[in-house]
Design a binder for these strands. Structure first.
Lengths: 197, 197
DNA sequence: GTCTATATGGGGATAGAC
DNA sequence: GTCTATCCCCATATAGAC
């Protein structure tokens, strides 16, 4: 407690800078300066930039899991849990208008670089997809749960993309309201006690 | 005719490479090689990389205008025009899964770089927004036309984002079908001959 | 207009002293 | 674990011959 390790400190700052400026555009000099260490010290903790990227992706995975667990604890109702997901767009509105979605923009950048870490980055999306699908299943949508999850994930990605381009808070709020109406309109079938055939 | 100017050739190749690899990740050496000229010759045509970016954005603007005009000529019905927009996701499916949307990914990259060309890039989105809004207005949606346009633009951006991350053709097709159902469900009010008050 | 140098700077990465 | 010093490469950009 109190003081985090230098390694952890590097990962945190790199996470932030990769998000704000992008992976490639962030140099070791940038991170070293943000952390307050020399560039040389850097290589004691991470041999290659890709190693650091792996650590950052791992951190984001862990943080995502924590956030999803927290929502699950805080909200017993699946719809409230899904609403919490939608509300990220409002809670992080300023950051999203400035730098987009951390997951989406990283995946896009790594795809263009044909970077090996593409697969790990996509798994963060996978966490959201699976968690959302679980909530839709709890709502009785046992069949199309994954499609619903991907639909919602896509809708939120679309909002972040245009939020970044146009920087219009009103657009974000309009779309969030539309998403919440969409969620409310999801029919909640009676619990299937008897399953035909 | 026949042979395009070297300048034009550079712009075309840069356009393609900026899309496939990203703006920053594409070097003059890459473009020079693709065009088949020396790096030195390059600077005869463009003093700075940013000048080339401007030219590429201008080209994309012009190409977008041409495409929209072409759709307007080919389809008299607004719904068919909007359908043509939605169908880009199918027509360019392979490229989108590999490199995303050319406009969205460029805007995202420039936003992170805090690049001055951000404003020009966003105007490409503006072309789509305004053209789509006009189609919705033709459908009788005189009030919420722009919101509908942004909604559709956002939905399509969301599809490209997840298409790039998951590379799942089935997802794209499912979402395109959903978008077409959404479009069909847009009520087409009777032409407002008498306007209250 | 096109080429071959070349200048200059920044990036990732290493060696080795403390 | 942290530092300074350094290597090497590649990027943008320039100068000047053809």
């Amino acid at each position: 407690m109190g003081k985090v390790s230098t390694r952890q400190h590097i990962i945190e700052r790199a996470d932030q800078l990769f998000y704000e400026r992008g992976f490639e555009a962030t140099s070791f000099a940038d991170i070293a300066q943000a952390v307050g260490i020399s560039r040389g010290n850097f290589y004691h903790h991470f041999k290659k930039k890709d190693d650091l990227l792996d650590a950052v992706v791992e951190r984001r995975m862990a943080n995502t899991r924590m956030m999803l667990d927290q929502w699950a604890s805080a909200f017993p109702e699946p719809k409230d849990r899904i609403r919490a997901f939608i509300q990220i767009l409002i809670v992080n509105q300023a950051k999203i208008m400035a730098h987009g979605c951390p997951v989406g923009t990283l995946c896009a950048e790594l795809a263009k670089l044909e970077h090996v870490a593409q697969n790990s980055a996509r798994q963060i999306f996978g966490l959201f997809r699976d968690w959302l699908a679980e909530q839709f299943r709890s709502l009785g949508r046992t069949q199309g749960a994954e499609a619903l999850a991907l639909h919602l994930l896509g809708r939120s990605q679309g909002v972040t993309a245009l939020a970044m381009a146009f920087r219009d808070p009103a657009f974000v709020e309009t779309e969030v309201a539309a998403l919440e109406r969409w969620l409310d309109s999801i029919d909640q079938p009676a619990l299937p006690q008897d399953q035909p055939s």
